[in-house]
Nucleic acid binder design. Structure first.
Lengths: 214, 214
DNA sequence: CTTTCGATACTGCAGATTGCAGTATGTGAT
DNA sequence: ATCACATACTGCAATCTGCAGTATCGAAAG
């Protein structure tokens, strides 16, 4: 039996795309930017090396071709590739990891001005709104004939809902936070605002949620 | 004037902690795991190299000391460090980036079994519940006398709310997704389930949200 | 008909970052 | 007296990013 050499998750991400159809590296990069970027953002550079390793390990095959004089490599998944992909799907996922520089700036806001804090919250909200706009376009494409993989619309709907939920949560939070901060005197002095009340509400929400959804 | 050499965000994260009080590298590592891990997760390894660079650039000073025979280095922020920190707080943050292997597995679920998909959703929910449990403990500590920085509780409350919102959004989504998938025939065949209805609802939610909160 | 611009199709390289193993000492409990 | 756990790091391979650089193709503009 083949030893289950664990690969970087990016390998499986590419394998997953190859399971849908053969792609050239360039198309693969486009596709990753378009759809995977929401939950598995990787630099384009990575997507040029990883398929080579998949080929070396027999999980994909590469077919060199030409567009006029210009070389182009098309990758295709193998049976072994589909096996490893299915295997990976059966293993527990890594916990979610979030890089959110905006919240880092909010957390350390007392080392700067109240104005800077409000600007940060504004940029966070603007970013969320921009993302929601792009999600709306994707939803539209999935609804109309634009869907590239009509047989996968159910999975797209489920994952799109995750993105929308996440972005709306950020937007709501940033909107709420802006309202609170507006009543503060400075970034280090919240004036009359009582953080303990908010913390108590958070505790309530957690208790309720964990009780009802377990 | 000093040129604003842009540093990795991790440098500012450490600078932010040093702005609160001096720390040894080990304590710094603990603290990053405890609080920053939620929105700026970094390997412990990183936190041993970065302070050295801060010292080299005059943003911090290191004081070597001893605990018996064992060396230990304590870092302190300098005035230049506080300046750069405030400067960073005034610059727009990087957009949020999420590594969520669980959703990647859901997205490619049709390459595996329905059972594997349900297991993935379960693990996502379990992870969210575990995190909410830890958040609850942190909220408790901030509420009772356990707060290490009572003058910063307002900022803790605002950021804690972000984490709670995010985790609850994930938990709600995973719960909902499990219900939907339960009605599917296989991971590639949703049976009677109509993804278009869900997509239409998502479009509605985006339209409403962007209209009301802009 | 030529120039220009954006899309296609990559490679090289320095530096950022992780994960893990390894080395050692200090402290409190059994 | 021993053991487990906390403290306090370093080395290294592999992963990953960002950016600059190379080159061809196709369509539109002048």
């Amino acid at each position: 039996m083949t030893p289950v050499r664990s690969r970087p998750t990016t390998a499986y991400a590419i394998l997953g795309l190859l399971a849908l159809q053969p792609w050239s590296t360039y198309e693969l990069a486009q596709q990753v930017q378009r759809s995977l970027n929401w939950f598995w953002p990787r630099a384009e550079r990575r997507l040029y090396d990883e398929p080579k390793r998949l080929v070396a390990d027999g999980l994909a095959i590469s077919t060199p071709g030409f567009t006029g004089q210009r070389r182009r490599t098309v990758y295709e998944i193998t049976a072994a590739g589909r096996d490893e992909l299915a295997d990976w799907l059966g293993r527990p996922p890594e916990p979610r990891a979030v890089d959110f520089e905006g919240v880092l700036k909010v957390f350390f806001a007392d080392a700067g001005s109240r104005t800077a804090l409000l600007a940060t919250l504004d940029e966070i909200a603007a970013d969320a709104r921009e993302r929601l706009g792009r999600l709306d376009v994707m939803i539209d494409q999935a609804l109309t004939d634009g869907a590239r993989f009509p047989e996968r619309v159910h999975l797209q709907a489920v994952t799109l809902r995750q993105h929308v939920d996440a972005e709306l949560a950020v937007l709501d939070w940033a909107t709420w936070a802006t309202e609170q901060v507006t009543s503060w005197t400075t970034a280090s002095d919240p004036g009359d605002w009582v953080p303990q009340d908010e913390l108590a509400r958070l505790h309530e929400r957690i208790t309720l949620a964990v009780a009802s959804r377990s």
